[in-house]
Amino acid sequence: MTIDHRTLLASRRGVLAGSAAGVAVHSASPAFAASSSQKADADPTAKVSLKVNGTDHALDVDTRTTLLDLLREHLKLAGTKKGCDHGQCGACTVMVNGERINSCLSFAVMHEGDEVTTIEGLGTPDDLHPLQDAFIEHDGYQCGYCTPGQICSAVAMLQEIRSGIPSHVQDDITEDPSVTELEMRERMSGNICRCGAYSNIAEALAEFAGETA
């Protein structure tokens, strides 16, 4: 949150300039204050057309809206989770044109014409994707909040290995990587599971990767 750091800097300057105790600290930053002169204007919006799980959508969104919030708040596809909103946890992982991204780090308006696949596009409670099935079988989750991101990430991750994208755990990066537990664990490390289901997720991935090899 930007204001914290700015505020902190402002506070530190205040403290360093004055005494440590009892000094009055003014915490709003000039940068933000400047923007208030435009408050009468409408917030900028833009049109974006994209395909989500095979369905076309055309929306007029605030340009500050992330792909994550477009999915969760505008399309009410809440399967994609907001864990940190800073690209640090992986809970918001979706596939865009087949590649995994942190949807919180991407503005919605950057996705004109894109094809987005979310957890809802992989399977449903009555028609599970094989990896969703493997997660259930191996108990690859507990609270469930990171789970959609883990599953979306894993589907794309296996494709990355098969496409020959290297990682730093390969013995020889000039060779094609192979689908090993070590490779998968390395490549899944952007998806945090605080419940600590990693060992079970690894088993679910091994089964799924074996089936789809």
Partner: peptide
């Protein structure tokens, strides 16, 4: 016993607090 809520959690259909539209 596999979790009875597993098919909801793995499909993103289990509703968490902020998602109760």
């Amino acid at each position: 016993t596999p979790r009875i809520d597993g098919k909801f959690k793995t499909t993103g259909t289990a509703p968490y607090a902020y998602e109760r539209h």
